[in-house]
Every structure is written in C-alpha cells, then in structure tokens.
Nucleic acid binder design. Structure first.
Length: 873
RNA sequence: GCGGGUGUGGCGGAACUGGUAGACGCGCUGGACUCAAAAUCCAGUUCUGGCGACAGAGUGUCGGUUCGAUUCCGACCACCCGCACCA
C-alpha cells in the first residue's frame, strides 16, 4: 500500500544506505569509460555546514549524477581544507587542541554532507592536516626548492606586537590588529616564497585559453598579474651630489615618449639610494620613518597627500647631460613595483602633477591632443593622458606617442654608458612572489633545518613528514613551535651538529593548491601523485566554488600545476588544472532586528503577510521585529538558516531543489520560507503524480491501440528531456528546474484528459520514468522512492540516461503568430512544410489581418518558416 | 581613478543565431472540498481603458538600424562588484 505522503525522513536515509551498500559512487581509476572530473571547492571544517555549502554541493552533485547517467566515469571527491587560524583561535579561547577541534568539526560536517545524499566517492576523502597529506606537500616544497622555484628573502609584514604574530592585510583594521587591537608594525622578516613570478607571462597568456571560465574571473586574474610593457632607463647621477658609491638611478616607465617633459625623479622611501642619502641627513631619515607609519593602513594610503623630500641628489637627463633633475624621496613610490624609482612627467601623469603643484616644480606638456594648437595647450590641475602628438620634445616633435616611444627606446638601447646600454625594453608585472611563511602552529611545517655551519639545509626526503608536535600550549602569544625546544632542536642533516628546525608553517593556500591532484590517487604513500592518474584525470572538467577565490586560490593552483609539471609530478597540458570553472552566487536572507536593535535569527521570527504587506513578530513573545535588508547569511547579522534544521523538517531533496530553482546559479539566491514551502509542496506533488501514473499505467498495460494522448505525453517527455539536457550542460539549473515543472504540469494535464480512456498506459509509464530520471540528479532520494513505486527494479542513480528521440520534437502543424507592421494581430495554423504562398494565402484570409490592414495594399509579406509571419502594409 | 557586470510584472526569473515578452516558481485574488482548519484541486493575475470582443502602452532613459529589437549600434541614468598612488 502506497502511503499518501512521501516521508523524506524515512526515505532519505534508506536510499543513502542503498547507494552505500552497492558502493555505486566509488570511482575506479582503471574504468575504461571516458572520464569526467567534477569538483566543488572543499570546505574549511569550521564547525557546521552552511547554506552556501548546500548550494555549492547541490550544483556539483547535479553535474556528477547527470554525467554518470550519461556514461562517464565520474570522479566526484570530497575533502577538508583543515589547516588554518580558526582552529588556533578556538584553542586559545576554549582550551581545545586545534587537532581535536578540527577533527570533531570534520566528523560533524561529514555527517551533514552525507545527509544531503551527495554522490561522493568517500573512499578518497582527505584532510590537509593529515600528515599522510602534508608530507607530500613537504616533498613538493623540497622538489620546488631544488628546481629553483623557492626563494628565501626578507619582506615587510604586518606585525602584531601583542599577539606576536604576522597578520594578513585583511586582519589589519584601521591600522590595528583585528584580535589584539594593538597598532600594527611593519617588520622586515626573512620569509619563504614560491617564485610564482617565474610564470607570470605564462599565467597571463594562458588565461586566453580558458574558455570555460567566467570572463570576470579571467579579467580579475589578468589585472592581478598586471602585465605592462615599458622601458628600464638608467639615469646617471651628478657625482658631486650623490652619496658615495652611488652613480645612477634605474627607473621603469611605460611613458618614455614623455621623457622631455621630465621635471623630477622620485624614489621609494625604502629605496637603497634613499637609505644611503638618509645616512647623512637626519631630516630625510625622519621623513622616511614617517612614510613607514602611513604605509600600514589601506585607508590612509588613499587619503595621503603626495609628499616628497628633496635629497639634493641630481640626476642627468639621458638625452641631455646638462639637464639636471632633482631626486626626491616620495611617499607614493612603491619599492615593490618596477625598480622603486620613477621619472616624473607632471603634464601627463596626475600623481606627478599633484606632486609638482605642491613643490612648485612646474610642468611642460609634451603630448598635445589632436586638433589642438600646441601653442595654446597648457596643463594646470589635470594631467593629460590621452592620445596626441609630441611637442616640446626636440627630435620627437610631431611623432605619435607610439612612434615616440619606439624612437626613444631605439636611441637609448644603442647608447652605451659604462659598458651597458642606457635603456632596455622590459615587461613588468604587478604580480609578486607568493610569500608562504606563516608564524603559526596549525599549518604544514616547512621542511628545512637551520644550521649555524651549513646554513639552510633541506630535510632529507626519507625523514618526511616533519610532523607537528602535539604537546603545545596556546596560553602565551606567539607561535608555539618557537617555544617547543624539543621539537625545534634537531641535528643538522648535513654535518650532524646541533641545529634548529624552521618554525614557520605554510600558508594554507598551499594546501588547497594541489588537493585536486591528490584526489586522483589519495592512497599513494611514496609520492604526492601517481603521474598516470593525475594525467588521466586532470584537468578538472568542472570546478565550482565561490567568487571569493577568483584570484588567489585559482592563481596559486595554476602556479602549482606548472611547478608540479616542472618537477615531474604531473604532465598536465599547459599546466592548467581547471578546464571548466564556475563561480556560484551567495545565499542571502532578510535580516531581522528587535526593538532594542539586536539581531534576531530567522528561526525565532514569524513573518505574517496581510494583503501584500509583511510584518514580522518574534515567536513566543509576539513582539514586533523589524524586517531589514537582504544580506549575505552571516553569524554577525544572525540571518542564517541551519541546513540541518531544513533537512530535518523538509528533507535534503527539498533543500537541494530550492537551492537550484529560481535564481541563476551565478547570482545570489534569496532564501525564503515561501520558497522552501514551494519546494516541499512540489516533492509531495511528484509523489502523488507518480502514484497516479502507476495506477493509470497498471490499469492500462497496453495491448490496445494508442490513444492520441499517448503521443502528446511522449512528446512532452522528450521535449523536457532535450531542454533539461541542454540546461544542465550549460549549468543553468534554474532553467532545468522550470522545464521539469513544465513536464509535471503536462503529465498531470494529460492524466486528467486520459482518465477512463485506454491506450495510453505504456506511454504514460515511459514518460513518468523519463520525468524521474530528469529529477534524479536534483532530488535523488525522491526519485528513487518514485522509481520503486513505478515498479522499477534497481536504482535510478544507476539507470542510463534516456535516449532522446528527436522525431518527437517536431510537430506536423505549427501555429505561427501573424503580425501586421510588426504588431501581433492573429495566429495561423499551417502544416509544418506549408509553402510560402500557401501561408500567405491563409494569412490574408484572416479577419484580424484584414481589419488591421485598414484597406491598405500589401507591400510585402515576410514569412520566417516555423517562426512568424509579418504583413507589411 | 581604472576595469567589469546588472537593469524585464508585486517578487525570483524565462525568452535558440533579431521573430508571439513575461515560461516556471513565489505571492496575491476568487472559487471548490471541509463543521472548521491544514492539505489538495479549479480559475485568474504586466499596466491602462472597456461588461465584453477588443484597443493602447510596455523589457532603466533617450535616439538609431530593421518588415520586426529584451536581443544589434550610440549616448545617458541607476545599482552592484573587482582592483587601486602599479610609474
């Protein structure tokens, strides 16, 4: 006896168990079918899954289940991005060990993900905090080191003097540490770097080949890499003015055409020449110190005025030795970009103009806009950076900007001073090397040893992994590894003398830069990867995740793939790990505020709707609650909905369905109670519909001539099949959902039409089965339950995708809209292959057309076959 | 400042290469069933006028191309996002 209502609470665990029993989602590397790798960004085990995870994994699961049904060998793994600061924060606050905290969270979240019914190969699960994972990461670090892809150099960091730790830029708020509130200092620390800049050009160029990436993401990466073509120019210094041993300044410019507009030189406060000059000039030293202070906060930089200090040093113009330019130390010059020095051409650069206007250095325009009289052209407050022709520039006068650049480059390249050319063409990147050192405990230890005699010595591969010590405390600020004498002290692998372990750990972005490769053979012990497995599975066919990782994570992964290729760990074409990339939108929700201004969580709010106006009250007290703007679900605004609650009360299928419906996947989706109710309603509707189909088909098993309804039903099913295929392939899940609704409506309507008649049972059953197969990637549990109710043996999750019958997509007669002068006036139904003249004749018979013509003669009739007819009066 | 995106009913959104604007869902209105409620079912729902057939307007604004424009072109407006003293 079929129950009246579908009970998700009972059905979902039952089918999850059935899938697990058959182990149908386990993927074998030796499966001969074509591969398809579907990957969603693995979660950080923060405690519990949130709706963003539900959305992300629901999308990935649709693709995985769909591709599996279509005969692909699908890899769809899951793991944990398990190192990171929150675990250490929890350790400090709750006296729990980061490892215990992390693994407890993993257990909770694994259970939650399993309750979603995702088609994951759990046998490949990995956690980045597992030595079995990070030992391979250490191995690759050593290989990269050997290959020259790792650097050790000093870099400025944000230092929190209270917490005694390095802070990321995002952790500096108004110049203060986000936890301690202490003013952040700039410190120079020796750090480890991955030489991502070695691949800057390739990372930039290959973006063009990533056709299945969002344009937005490619653009963001392109800007981040920041390629610009220019000229390195050496300016000689007038010896009498220069500090001892200093003979020149090298600058980078992209506007060498404006060299005759130069008014000054400027160098960064931490430029070596500035330091040399400051040694003899205490005022300059003070100025440099002042610049450092401002350097910290982003906000301050924005508002800071262009300040400079004349060092007294004079540089000589490369085209005129008698032309001297004052050398300033200026607060707006960055040591990290180019050479940390510029020549200032105020007429054509806004910053330079602001600067000269402050210090009274004047300006000379050297590029004149087209159609402007050079004699009339002056620059006052606004620099001119548009197109034009050269003026006031001696041998460049009259040239275009491009031609002038070329001429300058050509001349200076061939002009030799001190055995070197005066200038050199250079492609400059904004991208900087990736600093991976973190003064933290809960991360992958950097496998090197510092020996007084031998210097930096890599840990021998056979000694890996360098595991984190577990007996650490967090009651004192700073890195526990620094304080752990027993762990730190180690004999030097080279000479055997007493030496010290590196106590920095790796940026957690390193952990996530290769996990997708590890998934291809996570069992391998001796090597990070099995080359054959990596090469066979990568690139990932479809990667899905949040836009917040559009730059760093994806860029680092692209770097890693190249570095892995270079060190023999893989051989992936172009070093591109992700063939298809999709960035999904966020889950947002209304906010609620009580009278006292405190945030109220949706679970405590009841929203009532009266004639279109919505009011909210607090459950229990009945006190009114103010409905606030829709915002990203966050703990601080308390506008979160717990997936567990939704799954418990409605089931995973309802949650999945709602996450996929309505909003296009790349946009934000608004979580609403009504929307969930609608999804839940559809679940029950499917259950009833399939029940009715089962009954009708059972009573009419065939043997009779087919009724007209049978063809209608078949056509509806195959139309939906074609549309859903296309929508899923294009990741347009909201459209797929709409098409499934349409089929449900059509089946229901035909069921009513055909009631009591015979000759449509088999067609109805067939359509019902197709319907369930379309539904299965999205609501897999419900689909299984219905599949069984239709009397099918086996699992719908294992059923091959229905074969589309294209002949069912064409109609014998078509109804064409008829326009008169572009305005629709009537419809005409004609045979599909009706001739132009037959259609024209039929159209002119129509009353509505005659009326609209108002007696005017027909000038033209445009017939677009199977589309439209337009009569032009 | 530079770069990019978006704009369609009350709401989320759909509309293949220019071809019936508003699929599908939510909400709302009316009705059926019920003692009642929930659930379900039926009908309606872009706006304006009309009892009605119907007519007019309509995809941010203004203009252009076209037999025909949400779609193509130009200018503008609004909102959102990314980067930002990058030489």
């Amino acid at each position: 006896m079929r129950p009246e209502r579908y009970n998700a609470k009972e059905a979902e665990p039952k089918w999850q168990a059935a899938w697990a029993k058959e182990d149908i989602f386990r993927t074998r590397n030796d499966d001969p079918r074509p591969k398809h790798y579907v990957l969603e960004m693995f979660p950080y085990p923060s405690g519990r899954i949130h709706m963003g995870h539900v959305r992300n994994y629901a999308m990935g699961d649709v693709v995985a289940r769909y591709k599996r049904a279509r005969g692909f060998n699908v890899l769809h793994p899951m793991g944990w991005d398990a190192f990171g600061m929150p675990a250490e924060n929890a350790a400090m606050q709750n006296k729990v060990h980061p490892k215990d905290w992390t693994y407890r969270n993993i257990d909770t979240m694994r259970g939650q993900l399993k309750s979603m019914g995702l088609s994951l190969d759990w046998s490949r699960e990995l956690a980045t905090c597992d030595p079995a994972y990070y030992k391979h990461q250490q191995r690759m670090f050593l290989d990269f080191l050997k290959a020259g892809l790792v650097d050790r150099k000093t870099a400025k960091v944000n230092w929190d003097p209270v917490d005694q730790t390095v802070l990321a830029n995002e952790q500096v708020i108004d110049g203060r540490g986000w936890r301690s509130g202490a003013p952040v200092e700039q410190r120079e620390l020796t750090q480890w770097f991955f030489r991502i800049t070695a691949y800057a050009q390739d990372l930039h160029d290959k973006l063009d080949t990533l056709e299945r990436w969002p344009e937005k993401v490619r653009l963001m990466q392109r800007n981040w890499i920041g390629r610009s073509e220019g000229l390195l120019v050496r300016f000689a210094l007038r010896p009498a003015t220069a500090p001892a041993g200093e003979t020149e300044i090298e600058i980078f410019t992209t506007r060498h055409d404006t060299l005759f507009g130069a008014k000054f030189m400027a160098i960064a406060p931490d430029h070596p020449l500035a330091k040399a000059a400051a040694a003899k000039d205490p005022t300059l030293a003070a100025f440099i110190e002042e610049c450092r202070q401002i350097g910290t906060a982003q906000e301050a930089i924005e508002k800071a005025e262009k300040l400079g200090y004349d060092t007294g040093i004079r540089a000589l113009h490369p085209f005129d030795e008698g032309w001297e330019l004052p050398v300033y130390v200026a607060n707006f010059i960055l040591m990290e970009y180019g050479t940390g020095a510029i020549f200032g051409c105020p007429a054509h650069d806004q910053r330079d103009l602001d600067f000269v206007n402050r210090y009274g250095l004047g300006n000379t325009p050297v590029v004149c806009p087209p159609d402007v009289d050079p004699a009339q052209f002056v620059v006052t407050d606004e620099a001119y950076d548009g197109d034009g022709f050269l003026i006031n520039s001696r041998f460049l006068d009259g040239l275009s900007i491009e031609a002038a650049k070329e001429e300058v480059a050509r001349r200076l390249e061939s002009e030799v001073r001190d055995g070197r050319p005066q200038a050199e063409r250079k492609v400059q990147f904004r991208l900087r090397d990736w600093g991976i050192s973190r003064q933290r405990y809960w991360g992958c230890p950097i496998p090197v040893i510092h020996c007084d005699a031998c210097g930096v010595v890599p840990v021998p591969v056979e000694d890996l992994p360098v595991t984190l010590p577990e007996d650490v405390t967090f009651d004192v600020p700073g890195n526990p590894l620094d304080r752990h004498a027993a762990w730190r002290q180690v004999p030097c692998p080279a000479c055997g003398a007493a030496a010290r372990r590196e106590t920095d750990t790796m940026d957690t972005f390193v952990d996530s830069s290769w996990y997708f490769a590890r998934f291809t053979d996570p069992w391998r012990e001796g090597e990070p990867t099995d080359r054959d497995a990596v090469n066979a599975w990568l690139p990932v066919d479809q990667y899905i995740g949040g836009i917040e990782h559009a730059i760093l994570h994806l860029l680092y992964s692209r770097f890693f793939m190249r570095a892995m290729n270079a060190t023999g760990h893989s051989d992936v074409p172009d070093g591109e790990p992700f063939d298809g990339m999709f960035t999904q939108g966020m889950v947002v929700h209304e906010t609620y505020r009580a009278a006292d201004g405190s945030w109220v969580t949706p679970a405590e709010v009841k929203v009532e709707s009266e004639g279109g106006t919505r009011r909210a009250v607090r459950i229990g007290t009945g006190m009114p609650v103010e409905i606030g703007p829709i915002e990203k679900m966050s703990k601080s605004k308390r506008n979160t909905v717990d997936p567990d609650d939704i799954i418990a009360s409605f089931g995973a299928d309802t949650a999945r369905w709602f996450m996929l419906s309505d909003s296009p996947p790349e946009r934000d989706v608004i979580w609403t109670e009504e929307g969930v109710q609608g999804a839940a309603r559809f679940v029950q509707r499917v259950w009833r519909l399939i029940g009715e189909i089962a009954d009708a088909a059972g009573a009419d098993a065939g043997g009779r001539a087919e009724a007209p309804e049978a063809l209608v039903v078949r056509k509806a099913a195959h139309r939906a099949l074609a549309a859903v295929e296309e929508s899923i392939e294009g990741l347009r899940f909201n459209v797929a959902v709409a098409k499934i609704y349409e089929l449900a409506n059509a089946l229901q309507a035909q069921l009513g039409e055909a009631r009591g008649k015979g000759g449509f049972g088999p067609a109805l059953r067939e359509a019902g089965e197709i319907f369930l197969q379309l539904l299965a990637p999205m609501m897999p549990h419900l689909a299984e339950e219905c599949w069984a109710a239709l009397g099918r043996k086996g699992l719908v999750a294992e059923a091959p995708w229905p074969v589309l019958d294209r002949s069912l997509l064409v109609e014998n007669t078509v109804t064409l809209p008829v326009q008169v002068n572009g305005k629709k006036r009537a419809d005409v139904t004609v045979a599909r292959d009706a001739s132009q003249s037959a259609i024209e004749a039929a159209v002119m018979e129509l009353d509505a057309v005659r009326r609209a013509m108002e007696g005017r003669p027909v000038r033209k009739i445009i017939v677009v076959p199977q589309r439209i007819v337009n009569v032009v009066a």
